[in-house]
């Protein structure tokens, strides 16, 4: 049954995952090209100078990509469940409902993790070519918040898709907007170092929103 659920999720998301992979790859390639051209025309020492003296980590062009990928994956995966009333059928399968939902969004989180890890690895390797470890760590720790925004978007948008009433949908959307605002509040490198573990915990706790929406769906609440 587990394999069947995963296969169902794969069928729903495979084209989107391919598109997301291509978009992330294109973004990463563009970033790499941009870096190499800057080095070619201005020298790597200019980039070092910018990294050390300015409030930038050079990758700002990519900062909203994980957010978009996370949010859209949730739409692709969960919107058909409610729009075509499949969720009612899914929840009536002879399988524990909680586990079913955990499998579904666990699949999504795993897919996002693979995509994000791939991009972060390629970026780290590329950056390591130009910069010392200390600067690369600084860049990637700063970028960790952007990836966290991707997970947050996935979880909150999934909850919005599964939520049966518009009133609660608006509440969850408002919370997501505030969370995204918080995650992109500062452009100062490493400014989230202290709060990052708490934000990770908060985003992980956000998974209860998915179960909350499903429970309300099961109760038959609707507009």
């Amino acid at each position: 049954m587990n394999r069947m659920i995963l296969y169902k999720e794969w069928l729903k998301t495979r084209w989107f995952l391919l598109a997301a992979f291509l978009v992330l790859a294109a973004g990463t390639f563009y970033m790499g090209l941009s870096l190499s051209k800057t080095v070619q025309f201005n020298g790597a020492d200019k980039l070092w100078e910018v990294l050390v003296s300015k409030e930038t980590v050079l990758l700002e062009t990519l900062k909203y990509l994980p957010l978009a990928v996370g949010g859209l994956l949730a739409v692709v995966q969960f919107f058909p469940e409610t729009a075509r009333k499949r969720l009612k059928l899914t929840l009536h399968l002879p399988y524990p409902q909680g586990r079913m939902m955990a499998m579904m969004y666990g699949y999504g989180l795993a897919a996002l993790t693979i995509l994000f890890l791939l991009q972060a690895t390629v970026l780290t390797v590329s950056l390591r070519h130009y910069f010392v470890t200390e600067l690369v760590v600084r860049i990637m720790v700063t970028a960790a918040v952007w990836y966290l925004a991707g997970y947050a978007a996935y979880i909150w948008v999934a909850a919005v898709c599964l939520e049966p009433t518009w009133r609660m949908r608006v509440v969850v959307i408002v919370l997501l907007a505030a969370l995204v605002r918080l995650l992109f509040l500062s452009g100062v490198p490493e400014s989230y170092n202290g709060i990052l573990p708490w934000l990770v915990l908060y985003v992980l706790c956000g998974q209860v929103l998915i179960f909350h929406s499903v429970a309300r769906f099961k109760e038959g609440l609707q507009d």
């Binding site: 956000g206 209860v208 909350h212 429970a215």
Partner: peptide
């Protein structure tokens, strides 16, 4: 879980 969701929200 619904109660926890309510508290979280």
């Amino acid at each position: 879980m619904k109660k926890i969701g309510k508290i979280f929200i």
